[in-house]
Each structure stands twice: as structure tokens, then as C-alpha cells.
């Protein structure tokens, strides 16, 4: 009986793995076929030397970094304050941070265009820098579910109230408490949220495309529509970036010190 259920589990895992890996292997295999003579990394060479790739990947990386910085500055103090002073508001804040998962990105971006178009009271689509700012803000919104959940879990793992009171009784100001006591103790949670945000922003298409910004997502779509082998190489590159981010989350989560509540 036990061996039958174990066999069933292995079969399920094997089917799942094949379902997941087969398209990936096929894409990778296809990306190596650009050169008619045999397998080569020609498609990768072409993609990586394309100024469009460099510009869009650089732009999206910069956007991701800015999104992470602004997101952390927004979410860490908010989650900290909710935990310390306003725990009753936690369900409401959790609901708000989940909204970007429920409301499609296209709805959010049309809302932005309606609110911040060039004839609105705050015209954020009038020039490139303002639109970059708007795109970064929309990425912060998109990243909220990942950042808030990750940081809130990190804060729950430490005794925020007692640590804050201990620091207060020792004469620490609020900025000192946040920077020297709270931030270092939720560092791994912040980094987990940051890598998730990076992975989300790098491949994001809808917002960047509708706001007309030169991000990596629209570039992927453009190449996919006009070339044969390069889109496969790009898909593999994007996949590797995402997996590298996930791997780094695991590394930092593993290095986090356990049982902090009793420290």
C-alpha cells in the first residue's frame, strides 16, 4: 500500500517535471540552432550584442533597483508601524497590498493614464522622466504583495515591540531604532522581497508597453514578433535572471539566524 502511494507520488513528480522542463529544453535546443552547421550560441551572441537588448535590459534593471529602494522605504516603516502601533489595521493593509494581484495590470495602467495624462492636474505622461517616475510607481504597486508579505513575515519573526522599547529606554531616536535595530534584523526578509520584485519588474510588459517606455518586456515582445531564434535565446536569458533571483532568495533565507524571538 505504502509502496503504491510512493510510486504514485513519483509518477506525479515525473509528469510535473516533464511538463515543466520539456518546453524549456525545447526552447533552449531551438535557440542553439541559429547556425545551420550545428549547435552554437550564435543567437545569444546576436541578442547580447544588440544595442536594443542592452538599452532595454539596462533600463529595466534601473527601474527594478529604483522600485526596490522606493518599495522598501515605503513598506518597511509601514509594516513596522502597523505591527507596533496599529495591529488592528493589519487585515486592511494586507487587503490593500493584495489588490495588485486581483486587479489586472491593464486596468491599473488605464487608471494611471486617466489620472495623470497630459491634461490632468498632475501630468505625469508629459515627458519621459515623469513617465519613468509613473512607471516606477506602478512597479512599486505591482511589487506590494511580494514586498509587504515578505517584510511582514520578517517582522513577525522578531519581537518588534520589546526590541523597540529596549532601544527607546536606551535613548535611541526613531530613525536610529529603524536603521540600527529593525532593518538589520529583517535584512533577509527585505532581500527576499527585493529579489522577487526584481524578477517581476524585469519581465513586466503591460505597464511599460502602455506607458511607452523602452523596457525589457516590450523588447522581448518586439523581437518575438520579428525574429526566429533570438526570442528563444531571450526567453532563456529572462528565465535565468528570474531563477538567479529565486536562488538568491533561498541563499539569504537559509543564512537568516533562527529563533530570534527569544534573543
Amino acid at each position: 500500500m505504502k509502496s503504491t502511494s510512493r510510486l504514485g507520488a513519483w509518477v506525479a513528480i515525473a509528469i510535473g517535471t516533464i511538463y515543466f522542463l520539456l518546453p524549456l529544453i525545447a526552447t533552449f535546443e531551438f535557440s542553439l540552432k541559429m547556425n545551420r552547421d550545428g549547435y552554437s550560441f550564435e543567437a545569444y551572441k546576436v541578442v547580447l550584442s544588440d544595442p536594443g537588448f542592452q538599452a532595454t535590459f539596462g533600463y529595466s534593471t534601473l527601474m527594478a533597483v529604483l522600485t526596490i529602494i522606493v518599495g522598501i522605504l515605503l513598506v518597511v516603516p509601514t509594516a513596522y508601524w502597523i505591527q507596533l502601533k496599529l495591529p488592528r489595521l493589519r487585515p486592511l493593509v494586507e487587503f490593500i497590498t493584495l489588490l495588485p494581484l486581483v486587479i489586472p495590470a491593464i486596468v491599473i495602467v488605464f487608471g494611471y493614464l486617466k489620472l495623470y495624462n497630459s491634461s490632468a492636474w498632475l501630468p505625469l505622461t508629459g515627458n519621459d522622466r515623469a513617465t519613468d517616475f509613473l512607471l516606477m510607481c506602478s512597479y512599486v504597486t505591482l511589487a506590494l504583495p511580494y514586498l509587504y508579505r515578505s517584510i511582514d513575515a520578517g517582522l513577525r519573526a522578531i519581537d518588534v515591540r520589546t526590541l523597540t522599547e529596549a532601544a527607546e529606554s536606551l535613548g535611541a531616536s526613531w530613525p536610529s531604532i529603524l536603521l540600527q535595530v529593525i532593518f538589520p534584523n529583517v535584512k533577509s526578509a527585505i532581500l527576499s522581497g527585493a529579489f522577487l520584485t526584481f524578477a517581476v519588474v524585469i519581465g513586466e510588459f503591460t505597464m511599460a508597453s502602455l506607458l511607452g517606455r523602452p523596457a525589457f518586456g516590450p523588447y522581448l515582445q518586439l523581437i518575438g514578433a520579428n525574429r526566429a531564434y533570438e526570442p528563444s535565446a531571450l526567453a532563456i536569458i529572462a528565465f535565468l535572471v528570474t531563477w538567479a533571483s529565486m536562488g538568491l532568495i533561498q541563499v539569504f533565507a537559509r543564512n537568516a539566524r533562527p529563533a530570534r524571538k527569544t534573543a
Partner: peptide
């Protein structure tokens, strides 16, 4: 000064 039941030492 205050000493807490749970020590409240800064883990970092």
C-alpha cells in the same frame, strides 16, 4: 533603564 523578561537583546 529597563531589563525585560525576554531579554530584548538586539540579535544583530
Amino acid at each position: 533603564g529597563m531589563v525585560f523578561q525576554s531579554y530584548a537583546l538586539f540579535p544583530n
